[in-house]
Write a protein that binds this DNA or RNA. Structure first.
Length: 885
RNA sequence: GGGCCCGUGGCGGAAUCGGUAUACGCAACAGACUUAAAAUCUGUCGCCCAAAAGGCUUGUGGGUUCAAGUCCCACCGGGCCCACCA
C-alpha cells in the first residue's frame, strides 16, 4: 500500500540522523552572531509509570514554536533534563528494597527513550539531572550564597550578610548577640515551626504531601508537630513578586493566581492595652499590650471583643504569671486545638472559643473595655495571630458573637455627615437582613472629635483618617500583610540534596566550605523513616560527625535534605552552560541566553515552582551572580497547557484503567500522527479528552500528505523544475492563493500558539493540492516547510526524496506574497434589515454603488425590497451589505 | 465564602476587530470499488417542514446596535484554584 505513510521505516532513521548531525544543538554565544531564542518546558519527574500522554502536548507545542524560530534564523535552545529527586522514588526504594539512585537511573532511561521517540527537537547535549552531584553541587552552593545574604528593606534587594549594619545596642551585647542578629536577617534561616506529622508512617510531610489533612502515603490523619526547620525568607520578596509581574508576559490567570496566593492586603496594626482586674481594690491595671491586624481600621469603633488564636505566645506568659482566672479552661482549649487535624479544623467551621476571665482589652479609640477570647477561627500564622472582632462588619465575628451573645455595634458615618457624603456610608453589614444590630455608633465616636477630623470624614477617607489618628496617638500604624509564608526548606528525607551546613556547639551553624562541595549523599542501607522523625541520614554516624569549618572542633552535619523544589528553582540557568565546572553558568552564557523567551508548564505549578524559581532567580540576580542586563525576571513569557483527559473526559488514572501509553500510540500510528493529533485536539490551554476515533482523522491527514508526494513523484511530467518548460507555468490560481493564505495563517497561528487551527489550515491546503492538476516544485517545497514543524519526520523524508542533502528543519521559513492574499472577487452577504437574504460576488474593494447594483440583481433581494426605497444602506467593504427599509 | 474561567451540531471544536454562525476533523447515513471485509473514493449531514420557499438556532431572559456567539445587566448550569487570611 504505497499511499500509506510508512512511519515504521522512516521516523527512527531521522531521529538518529538529527542527533548525529546535531541539528538541534544550540550554539554558544562565542560561536555565533545570531539572535537567540530560549524555549523551555518543565523538565519531567522520571516516575516509575513512564511518560504520560500529557507530557508530549507541551513538548510538541514548544517544539513547533522552536522549529519555526529556527527556520526564521534564530539560534534556538530547547533543552530537557530530569527533575529526579523526590518522594515517589524514595517510597519505591523502600518498597522494592533498591537504591533510589538505581531506580532513578532506570526511570530516566525509560523517560529518555520515550521522549526521544517523540521526535521532539531537544538539545540533548545540554541534558541535566538534578540528582547528579555535578548539578547539585551548585544547588548546595546557592543555598550557601542565600545563607550568606540578607534582605535590605530600603533597597528592596538581597545583599551580602557582611554588609549588614549591626545596630550599636546589639554590638555592645557582644559576639553572641551579633551572631543572633545576623542569623535573624539571613535569607536562609533555621527556626522552629509546625510541620505535618503522620503518626502511622512516622514521617514529616510537606503541605503538598498532606493535602486535606490526610497523609499521601497511608491515607491516615495528619497531626501537627513542632520541628526545627530551614526556611527561606521568600516573604521579603512578596512585593517584588507581585510588582515585577508587570515586566513579564504571563497568562492573566497565572498572574492573578500568584497575586492571590501572595495575598497582599493593606490595613493597620492597632494596639489594645490588656488590663487586669485587681479584685482587692477594683482597679484595672495595664499588664500588657496586644497588637491586632485589620484591613478595616474604620470599624474600630464597632470592635466589641478581642480574639487571640489558641497558639498566641502571650497566653503562655499570662498563664505563667497567673493573670488568668480560668487557666484550666484555657489550657484545655489550647490542647483540643492542638490535637485537631487540619482537616477537622477545615471541615468543622462551627465556632468555638473560651473567654479569658480576669483580663480585659481597652479599645484605644473609645477607651472602653472589651472582653478577651481565644478561638481557633483566628489563625496563628496570619497577621499578629490576634484580631479585634467587629461582628457588625465581619461574618465570622458575627457568627461568633451570635453564639456567645456578644454585643454587635454597627459603625456608620455621623448623621450630620451622612447627608454630606455622597454616596453615604458604603460600609455594609455582612448580611443586611440578618444582622440584628444592637446599637450604632459613628466613625470617630469617642475620639475627641475636632472639626478638622470630621470635616473630610467621608467613607472613602475614613480609613486613612483613622490610621492617621492612630499614628498620632501612638495607638497603631498602617501596615501591609501577606498570606504567603516563608518557604519551609527542610525535609526529613533521604532522596534530596543534603543541606550543606554544619553545627558546632561553639560557633553555631556554619556553611560547608565551598571547596568541599558537593556534599555527596552517602549510601544508606535502610531508607525507612526513624522513630524520631529525623532524616535517615541522621543514623549514619560517620557521615554526621565532622569538624567545624570555623574552629576545627567536633561538629555535626545537618541531616535534613532539600525539598524537590530546590533543583527545579534554577535548572533553566544550568542549561545555558551545562558543562561548566567552574561556575553554575558563565556570565557570558547567561547574558546571551537569559531570560527564557517562552516557558510552558502546568497550572499546578503556578503558586509553587513558578513562584519559588522567580524568587530564587531574584536573589541570585541581586547578589550579582546573574548579570544585571538579564533583568529581574527569569521568564519573559509563561503559558500553561491544558490536561489530556481519558476518554469521556475523566482524568486518566491507573485505577480507572483509562491510561493511554505513548509507546502504544507511537507503535500503532507513529510520532508524527501522535504529535499532530495532540495539537489538533483543541485549544492548547484547554483540557481535552483522548479520542481513539479522532486520531484516525490525523492518520488520514498524514496518509494524504504521503500520497500527494507519491502521485507527484511518480508523475515525471510534473516533476520538472526547469522554468523554460511550459508546464512550469501551469498555475492553479486557486491553490496559489490558498497556499499564501496558509503561509500567513500557519505562521500567525504558531506565534499565537493556536496549533489546532494551524493544522486545520494545513488540511485545507493539502486537500486543495490534491485536487489541483499540478503543483510547481517551489510551491510544493513551501508546502513541505509549512508541514515540517508539525510532522518533522514525514517532511524530512519527502524533502530528501527531492534530492536534498541537508535538513528541511534548517531551511528558511517561507514568506507569503501579500498580493496573492487578496482575491479578485469575494462573496459578500446581503442583509435586509439585518437578516441575510442573498449573496453577491464582487471585488473586495468595490464601491457601495457597485455593491448595491450587484445586490439588486439578486432575485431574493429584489423580492424582499419589493421596490421599497432603502432608508439606509450600511456597507462595510469585504464584510457586509445591510439594507434597511 | 473569595478569586479565575467556560456554556456553539450526535462529539472535539472554528468564527483572531461587533459584520454570511457551525471552518477543520470525528461519528453517522447512502453510494462506488471489492467474491467479501478493511482501506480508499464520491455524496448527504444544526433544528422544524415530504421538498422548495420559509421559519428557528450559539445555556435562559432582558438591553445596546443597522448588525451580537462576540459588548452590557440579571439568572441558570459547569469547571479550576484558594479557602475561618480578619
Amino acid at each position: 500500500m504505497a499511499n500509506k505513510y510508512p512511519f515504521q521505516d522512516i521516523e527512527q532513521k531521522w531521529q538518529k540522523w538529527w542527533e548525529d548531525n546535531g541539528i538541534y544543538h544550540a550554539k554558544q554565544p562565542s560561536d555565533t552572531k545570531d539572535k537567540k531564542f530560549y524555549t523551555l518546558v518543565e523538565f519531567p519527574y522520571p516516575s516509575g509509570d513512564g511518560l504520560h500522554v500529557g507530557h508530549p502536548r507541551s513538548y510538541t507545542a514548544l517544539d513547533i514554536v522552536s522549529r519555526k524560530k529556527r527556520m526564521e534564523g534564530l539560534n534556538v535552545m530547547y533543552p530537557i533534563g530530569w527533575d529526579a529527586f523526590g518522594l515517589p522514588t524514595e517510597n519505591a526504594a523502600i518498597k522494592k528494597k533498591m537504591q533510589p539512585a538505581i531506580i532513578t537511573e532506570k526511570n530516566v532511561a525509560t523517560f529518555k527513550r520515550q521522549t526521544q521517540s517523540l521526535g521532539t527537537g531537544f538539545d540533548w547535549s545540554r541534558e541535566i539531572n538534578t540528582t547528579d552531584p555535578k548539578y547539585y553541587k551548585w544547588t548546595q552552593w546557592m543555598f550557601i550564597q542565600f545563607y550568606n545574604a540578607y534582605f535590605d528593606e530600603s533597597l528592596q534587594k538581597a545583599r551580602p550578610i557582611t554588609e549588614l549594619e549591626i545596630p550599636a545596642e546589639i554590638q555592645k551585647d557582644g559576639d553572641l548577640a551579633i551572631r543572633n542578629y545576623r542569623d535573624s536577617k539571613r535569607i536562609v534561616y533555621k527556626t522552629t515551626t509546625t510541620i505535618n506529622w503522620c503518626p502511622a508512617c512516622k514521617i514529616g510531610l510537606s503541605n503538598e504531601e498532606a493535602q486535606g489533612g490526610v497523609c499521601e502515603r497511608c491515607g491516615g490523619e495528619v497531626e501537627k508537630r513542632e520541628k526545627e526547620q530551614w526556611m527561606m525568607r521568600i516573604t521579603k520578596y512578596a512585593n517584588r513578586l507581585i510588582d515585577e509581574l508587570s515586566d513579564v508576559n504571563y497568562l492573566d490567570k497565572i498572574k492573578t493566581q500568584q497575586i492571590n496566593w501572595i495575598g497582599r492586603s493593606e490595613g493597620a496594626l492597632i494596639k489594645f492595652a490588656i488590663t487586669q482586674n485587681q479584685s482587692q481594690d477594683h482597679v484595672h491595671r495595664t499588664i500588657d499590650e496586644i497588637e491586632v491586624f485589620t484591613t478595616r481600621p474604620d470599624t474600630l469603633f464597632g470592635a466589641t471583643y478581642l480574639v487571640l488564636s489558641p497558639e498566641h505566645p502571650l497566653l503562655t506568659s499570662w498563664i505563667d504569671h497567673d493573670a488568668i482566672e480560668n487557666i484550666k479552661e484555657v489550657k484545655d482549649y489550647q490542647e483540643t486545638t492542638r490535637k485537631k487535624s487540619d482537616r477537622e479544623r477545615q471541615e468543622n467551621k462551627e465556632k468555638t472559643g473560651v473567654e479569658i476571665h480576669g483580663l480585659k482589652a481597652v479599645n484605644p479609640a473609645t477607651g472602653k473595655e472589651v472582653p478577651v477570647w481565644i478561638a481557633d477561627y483566628v489563625l496563628a500564622g496570619y497577621g499578629t495571630g490576634a484580631i479585634m472582632a467587629v461582628p457588625a462588619h465581619d461574618e465570622r465575628d458575627y457568627e461568633f458573637a451570635k453564639k456567645f451573645e456578644l454585643p454587635i455595634i454597627k459603625v456608620v458615618v455621623p448623621p450630620a455627615l451622612a447627608e454630606l457624603s455622597h454616596p453615604p456610608a458604603n460600609i455594609t453589614p455582612v448580611s443586611q437582613e440578618d444582622v440584628r444590630v444592637e446599637s450604632e455608633c459613628w466613625i470617630g465616636e469617642g475620639i475627641s472629635i475636632n472639626s478638622e477630623f470630621l470635616n473630610d470624614l467621608t467613607t472613602d477617607k475614613s480609613q486613612e483618617k483613622i490610621v492617621a489618628w492612630l499614628e498620632e496617638h501612638g495607638a497603631g500604624h498602617g501596615c501591609t500583610n501577606y498570606k504567603q509564608r516563608d518557604w519551609v526548606f527542610s525535609r526529613q528525607r533521604y532522596w534530596g540534596e543534603p543541606i550543606p551546613m554544619i553545627h558546632c556547639e561553639k560557633c553555631g551553624w556554619q556553611p560547608v566550605a565551598e571547596s568541599e562541595l558537593p556534599i555527596l549523599l552517602p549510601d544508606v542501607e535502610n531508607y525507612e523513616p526513624t522513630d524520631s522523625g529525623e532524616s535517615p541520614l541522621s543514623v549514619i554516624i560517620d557521615w554526621v560527625n565532622t569538624t567545624c569549618p570555623a574552629c576545627g572542633g567536633n561538629a555535626k552535619r545537618e541531616t535534613d535534605t532539600m525539598p524537590n523544589w530546590a533543583g527545579s528553582s534554577w535548572y533553566f540557568l544550568r542549561y545555558c552552560d551545562a558543562e561548566n565546572d567552574q561556575v553554575f553558568a558563565s556570565p557570558e552564557a547567561l547574558k546571551y541566553w537569559m531570560p527564557v523567551d517562552l516557558y510552558d508548564g502546568g497550572m499546578e505549578h503556578t503558586t509553587l515552582h513558578l513562584l519559588y524559581s522567580r524568587f530564587w532567580y531574584k536573589v541570585l540576580h541581586d547578589l550579582g551572580h546573574i548579570p544585571e542586563s538579564c533583568g529581574v525576571e527569569p521568564y519573559a513569557k509563561r503559558t500553561a497547557h491544558g490536561m489530556i483527559l481519558g476518554e469521556g473526559g475523566i482524568k486518566m488514572s491507573k485505577s480507572k484503567g483509562n491510561v493511554v501509553n505513548p509507546d502504544d500510540v507511537i507503535s500503532e500510528y507513529g510520532s508524527d500522527v501522535f504529535r499532530c493529533y495532540e495539537m489538533f485536539m483543541g485549544p492548547f490551554d484547554t483540557d481535552a479528552p483522548w479520542d481513539t476515533h479522532g486520531i484516525q482523522g490525523i492518520k488520514r491527514f498524514l496518509d494524504k500528505i504521503w500520497s500527494l508526494h507519491q502521485t507527484r513523484t511518480t508523475n515525471d511530467e510534473l516533476r520538472t523544475t526547469n522554468p523554460s518548460d511550459a508546464k512550469f507555468e501551469i498555475r492553479n490560481t486557486k491553490y496559489e492563493s490558498i497556499l499564501h493564505k496558509s503561509i500567513k495563517k500557519v505562521g500567525d497561528d504558531i506565534d499565537a500558539m493556536r496549533f489546532n487551527t494551524a493544522i486545520s489550515q494545513l488540511m485545507i491546503l493539502t486537500n486543495t493540492l490534491l485536487e489541483s492538476e499540478s503543483v510547481t516544485d517551489d510551491d510544493y517545497k513551501t508546502y513541505l516547510k509549512l508541514i515540517a514543524p508539525f510532522a518533522p519526520h514525514i517532511a524530512e523524508q519527502i524533502w530528501h526524496n527531492f534530492g536534498n542533502e541537508s535538513s528541511i528543519h534548517l531551511e528558511a521559513w517561507p514568506t507569503y506574497n501579500p498580493d496573492l492574499l487578496i482575491e479578485d472577487t469575494i462573496t459578500l452577504g446581503v442583509q435586509i434589515n439585518g437578516k441575510v437574504r442573498g449573496e453577491i460576488t464582487i471585488a473586495p474593494d468595490a464601491k457601495e454603488s457597485e455593491a448595491m447594483e450587484a445586490a439588486m440583481q439578486d432575485e431574493n433581494v429584489k423580492k424582499y425590497l419589493d421596490g421599497t426605497e432603502p432608508k439606509k444602506v450600511i456597507y462595510v467593504p469585504g464584510r457586509i451589505l445591510n439594507i434597511v427599509i
